[in-house]
Simulated scan of single mutants.
Amino acid sequence: MRKIFLLSLFAVSLFSCSSDSSSTPQEQMYFPPNDGSTTWETKTIAELGWNQNAVQPLLNYLELKHSKSFIILVNGRIVMENYFNGHSASTPWYWASAGKTLTATVTGIAQDEGLLNINNKVSDYIGTGWTSAPLAKENLITCKNLLSMNSGLNDALGDDVSPANLQYVADAGTRWAYHNVYVKLQDVVATASGQSWTNYFNTKLRDKIGMTGGAWINSGDGLSVYWSTSRNMARFGLLSLNKGKWNGTTIVNENYFNQATTTSQSINQAYGYLWWLNGKTSYHLPQTQFEFSGELIPNAPNDMYAALGKNDQKIYVVPSKKMVVIRMGDAADDVTMALSDFDETLWTKISALYQ
């Protein structure tokens, strides 16, 4: 019953497999050029000493589970890149909530530039009345609370982030609940920078790592969803693997990135700044206040952190393997939230490549 219950919620995915020398290459990290070309260095399964016989079962499973794209990078080089069900390398697809990590990263960039401080209250930047909470309660909510999902606002009222729908439940910092109110950070960045969110995002992050052509598309309810090619998602994963550095250039401060991929509050060990974290002793999931024991994905490496979105949009980052894994597509099963048994089975098949 616990398994079925967990599958119906949401989640994150990561690695808990052991590291060995064959799966932790020591060669120099590679970054693809930012010139808009299709140039991207590759590494073969054979060159890594991986198990070629494990490739086809993985591909068969991905296609069966309604995937559109799948990429594995090791040390920045493409090891696998596959497209399914009519998708192609040039076709954009939505990130869903995996794009929350883009907002977390850009918030860190704005803090690096002295435009904001995540410890300041949200109303310092966008004014009061952005919620329907009593003013004293609204003023408890900091930018860090939005990054950490502990704003204290009601998570049971849907995706609408208009003031009337942002209602007080508990004091900020005392309750963890997955909530799209995080999007108010985009308003904070826009106001603090004096630019539109899209312009600041494009100039400070997208264009600096060559994520050409990606765009924020309004989905209603005050939310925008990021769309891009799978390779552009892989570029962001590679930036994240390198803790905010791109080919020697700091895009976001490493200290901030380390905070973002470390437990951000005392309630949900498996959550950083809009990143999900594997390898913790307990975790919370969306739509419940129950605390579950153990790791999010026990058969994935325990140092993995992940950006996860609806219908199984996924960025898995595994520092111990110097690996980034991308999956885009439709929901693998009837479960549309980010975590399902798809994650565990997928990682069983991925780990078969190198074990």
Rank of each mutant, 00 (worst) to 15 (best):
D155C: 07
A164I: 12
T44D: 03
N302V: 04
T142S: 14
N202Q: 14
Q287S: 13
T250H: 00
S340P: 12
A260P: 01
E113P: 01
E291I: 14
L353I: 06
L116Q: 05
K314W: 08
D330E: 14
I78F: 02
G158L: 11
Q28N: 14
A300M: 08
W347H: 13
L116N: 09
P92D: 05
L7K: 10
Y271N: 00
D343E: 13
G237C: 00
S97L: 04
A306T: 09
E295V: 06
D124N: 13
R327K: 13
G329K: 01
S19F: 13
A133R: 06
L48V: 12
V324I: 07
V161M: 05
A89D: 10
L64V: 02
L166G: 02
L274Q: 12
L64S: 13
P286I: 15
D187V: 01
N150K: 06
Q28Y: 09
A338H: 02
K121V: 09
N232F: 03
W246P: 02
K280H: 09
S132R: 08
A332H: 12
A177Q: 11
S351Y: 13
W95L: 07
E138H: 03
L140I: 07
A192H: 04
N247A: 14
S224E: 11
Y125M: 14
A11D: 14
P134M: 04
D20R: 05
S69M: 15
G114R: 04
E291M: 10
Q52E: 09
W197M: 01
G214W: 04
I118Y: 04
S320H: 06
Q355S: 11
D187Y: 11
A172F: 02
L64I: 05
P301Q: 14
A54P: 05
T105I: 10
Y83N: 08
A164R: 15
D341I: 14
F292A: 11
L73K: 04
K184F: 13
Y61Q: 00
Y283I: 09
P319K: 07
I45H: 06
E63M: 04
S196Y: 11
V183E: 15
G237M: 01
Y83F: 14
E47P: 11
T103P: 00
H66Y: 09
E295K: 15
Q269L: 13
L115E: 03
T174V: 06
S320R: 00
A234L: 07
P92W: 00
A215L: 08
G279H: 07
T262F: 00
A170R: 10
S69L: 08
T191E: 11
T203W: 12
L239V: 02
A190E: 05
N34D: 13
L185S: 12
R327N: 01
